[in-house]
């Protein structure tokens, strides 16, 4: 009985989706007389939603049909790469050269993959652990949030170091070590990356219903099961974001100094 209920999915037809798309088109039309200059952006963004999600749908279908770690590895590599570029793009002052993309991507890779693999092998215990039905959505949720945390944390670190260069150098010239000299700024960077996930853990279920849980319930999962997965996801996101941000901001803070503990803001590009 319960199983039967969980299987009920009302399949959406292209016509259903077209009706929903009318909302976006209507908004775009309204923005013309209001001179919001957003109609073009709205239509492009709406089209991208359709194309990108359709593509990932096809990719997931192909992956589900041929379960193999190589397929998962390729998709995961693309996801991490795109997220790494996005982290770099969100920096007002980013590190020059390979470090610009390296610090964020490496931290995100280490943190997201460790957390995802841990969840797949120990918590959910799915066999094989690389089953894409679990691996891809989990990785996607964790990556998306870790990416935001790292981008905020790194941006805060480099922007504050730039503003407070006089303080950092004053501390250096009084004989503080590099790590001590930037301690407060590094701490603020990490805190700012972590605060969004702490906030969302605090209000989830009261103010916001997470998109993942909503999607699961809409597609027929029992609420109690959806809730359990959502709790898992929240904890995984907190871990991935937290450890990833700590790693990225710490690496970034180290990179701001050379081997003679000099503040090297010339390593940043605006």
């Amino acid at each position: 009985m319960e199983d039967e209920q969980a299987m009920q999915v009302i399949s959406l037809s292209p016509i259903d989706l077209s009706l929903a798309a009318l909302l976006v088109i209507g908004l775009a039309l309204l923005s013309i007389p209001m001179r919001l200059q957003l109609s073009r952006q709205l239509l492009v963004a709406g089209s991208r939603t359709v194309v990108q999600l359709s593509l990932i749908g096809l990719v997931l279908k192909a992956l589900f049909d041929h379960i193999h770690p190589a397929g998962l590895a390729v998709v995961a590599a693309v996801m991490v790469g795109v997220a790494g570029v996005e982290i770099m793009r969100r920096q007002k002052r980013r590190f020059a050269g390979i470090w610009g993309i390296g610090v964020g991507t490496l931290s995100m890779f280490v943190s997201s993959f460790c957390v995802t693999v841990l969840a797949l092998t120990v918590v959910i215990d799915i066999r094989p652990w690389y089953h894409p039905q679990y691996a891809i959505p989990l990785l996607g949720m964790i990556l998306g949030n870790t990416m935001s945390g790292i981008a905020i944390g790194l941006d805060r670190l480099t922007a504050t170091a730039w503003e407070q260069r006089a303080v950092i150098e004053a501390r250096l010239s009084l004989g503080f070590g590099w790590s001590e000299a930037i301690e407060a700024i590094r701490r603020e960077g990490i805190r700012s990356g972590l605060i969004p996930i702490i906030n969302s853990m605090s209000v989830v279920g009261l103010v916001s219903l997470p998109g993942m849980m909503t999607g699961q319930i809409l597609s027929g999962t029992l609420p109690v099961e959806a809730v359990k997965y959502q709790i898992l996801i929240m904890f995984l996101i907190a871990g991935g974001t937290g450890f990833g941000t700590i790693l990225a901001v710490s690496l970034g803070a180290r990179r701001l100094f050379d081997d003679r503990e000099r503040l090297r803001l010339d390593r940043l590009r605006s």
């Binding site: 006089a166 150098e169 004053a170 501390r171 250096l172 010239s173 009084l174 004989g175 503990e261």
Partner: peptide, 15 residues
């Protein structure tokens, strides 16, 4: 940092 503790640099603008 040990070197800087020994040579005592006083910048024109204090922070």
């Amino acid at each position: 940092h040990q070197w800087r503790r020994c040579v005592g640099f006083l910048p024109a603008e204090s922070a």
